[in-house]
Design a protein around this nucleic acid. Structure first.
Lengths: 332, 332
DNA sequence: CTGTTAGCGCGTTCAC
DNA sequence: GTGAACGCGCTAACAG
């Protein structure tokens, strides 16, 4: 045994220094690439020693001195965790790993303040936020030195908001074959949901632009009885009607309710979902749904992530207009 | 201004000490409840100062000295994140909060070693593991001082494993009205899945117990074309057949494939899903599905969580046999 | 009994 | 290339 003196204890920079025959300061400099034009000789010694010891710097020690952890928080709206967001998490995780960051997934709770507090507690390097945080929250966050990603939020005009476009696309599709009475079917879930309102707004805008009456908002639970009751009230006002749904699951609930009420689809009741989930394409009738191509968002996130370490202020990502696409099914 | 001398900087124990007119040691003692029979007087001063300053001890500083973070990791199999697991996460989060712990959700990656490394990096207090970690992984984990929860894993005989029972229940239900050719429809997903094998094993055991031929394993993708192809091969061997599915989504895919092949359900093709998802009960035909009542698991987790701080070795949770229940739908 | 001093744990960084 | 101090909280040892 040469230096394996301390059993079952993670090696510290001191151990590496000892083994390489240098000081801890040197170890730190070499390992951080930073400010180091040490002789090739020395660098190798340090690197070798670190590798042999499987040295991993202590996150706690580092956090203590930098005032910041190596954590990247991904904040997810609680209500919606489908394939889409899972892909986003995977993608972010891969990128973060390249920067040596740890990804922490956090579901937004009912209490926004509590959620924010929990995040701040991590002292994260950055927070990927898909619409959960309010502008004030973001400010609070950035005041602590954390970066809020994507940098430029659903800014400017509503047309820049992907979810607004989703709502508009739903309305357009539902009105394709002539005017109908429209409604937006929101998700009834105790947890908060940031996506519903802009989608509803998009529908309203599109409908108003055609001079039709404002669509109302329906709360559709994911249970047959409740969904049926909710739809029945709306159906009582006459057919044909069209319902833009919060997502494919809600759309499936609306269809089930429609069947139970004896409504014909798409004759009496046409329906559009959102997300193009696999299940939506497997049920009968196959859903017409809106596919969000949030390439712009993903690119922006990737760019912001990349910018995290190389301080060069990245130019704003080219803005390939957020796009939505209708997947034609059998429900419109 | 009295003591607001340092702007935008979190107060440290030093600040509290100064404000309370005591030493940092006293602050630490009082705030940790531990070993402190200081006069009521002093305690109040410290508490008051801490409250006024909104003092929150630095996780990094604490981690440095304790060698352990205040993080509780919840490890989730990547393939499956439905309402069930979400509830589990919520429940664990609530409990953890009571212990002053931060919950970190982690999706198991393709690479087990990498996943484990990522977890170890947090130096967590404990890891809630629903079946992702191998026994060796758990040992590695506990060697670092972390607690693997639930403490007692799907031990002993297979009958103790909830997922095994799920498989058996599926087989029983599918064979209720007489013998059929059975198969297990696994999830085709690049990510790993710890639940499939025990479910399949449960089916096989139940089928063998009746002297019927061993069910084969089908890989059913969540796309119509692929699912149809996979089912067609199996259907070629004759009807009636019964398929136990990995979950409700797969069951919906099987049903879609069956429709496309002109099979009658439940006549030619009967199907059972797992999870009793809302969507499964909204599609037509309504799914027969297996509801897992993992009360035992949840209780064990809760107990282990509670035990985390109060060192009293908790007695083993009473073992209310894991239970599964069939929800009768229209597919069997 | 009440409270303090001092030093540890780990990595970083300024100044020499 | 190094010594020394820092950041923050914990706790053993010790003094009033």
């Amino acid at each position: 045994m040469t230096a394996e003196t301390k059993p079952n204890k993670r090696p510290t920079s001191f151990d590496v220094a000892k083994r390489a025959g240098v000081s801890r300061a040197t170890v730190s400099h070499v390992l951080n690439g930073q400010g180091s034009r040490f002789p090739e000789q020395t660098q190798q010694k340090v690197l070798k020693a670190a590798a042999e010891l499987q040295y991993k710097p202590s996150p706690a020690g580092r956090a203590l001195v930098t005032g910041r952890s190596d954590i990247l928080v991904v904040l997810i709206p609680n209500a919606t965790f489908g394939t889409n967001l899972q892909d986003l998490v995977d993608s972010v995780s891969a990128q973060a790993a390249r920067h040596g960051l740890s990804v922490v997934v956090r579901f937004a709770g009912r209490d926004a303040a509590e959620t924010l507090a929990a995040i701040l507690h991590f002292r994260p390097v950055a927070v990927v936020d898909i619409g959960v945080l309010s502008p004030e929250d973001r400010e609070t966050l950035e005041a602590t030195g954390a970066v809020a990603i994507p940098r430029y939020r659903q800014s400017r005009e509503p047309e820049g908001d992907l979810n607004f476009l989703v709502g508009r696309a739903m309305a357009d599709e539902l009105l394709r074959d002539g005017p109908r009475r429209l409604a937006f079917a929101a998700l009834v879930d105790e947890r908060q949901d940031p996506f519903g309102p802009p989608r509803y707004a998009g529908m309203k805008a599109a409908v108003r632009a055609r001079g039709l009456p404002t669509p109302e908002r329906l709360d559709i639970p994911l249970k047959l009885a409740g969904a049926k009751a909710a739809l029945e009230a709306f159906a009582a006002q006459g057919t044909p009607m069209g319902i833009g749904c919060y997502n494919d699951d809600v759309a499936i609930a609306v269809l089930a309710a429609g069947r139970a009420l004896g409504l014909k689809t798409p004759g009496d009741l046409s329906v559009v979902g959102v997300d193009a989930t696999e299940v939506g394409q497997l049920v009968s009738p196959r859903l017409t749904t809106v596919l969000m191509q949030d390439d712009a968002l993903m690119e922006q996130i990737a760019a912001d992530l990349a910018e995290l370490h190389q301080k060069e202020a990245t130019q704003q990502v080219h803005d390939p207009r957020p796009m939505v696409r209708i997947i034609q099914g059998e429900t419109t």
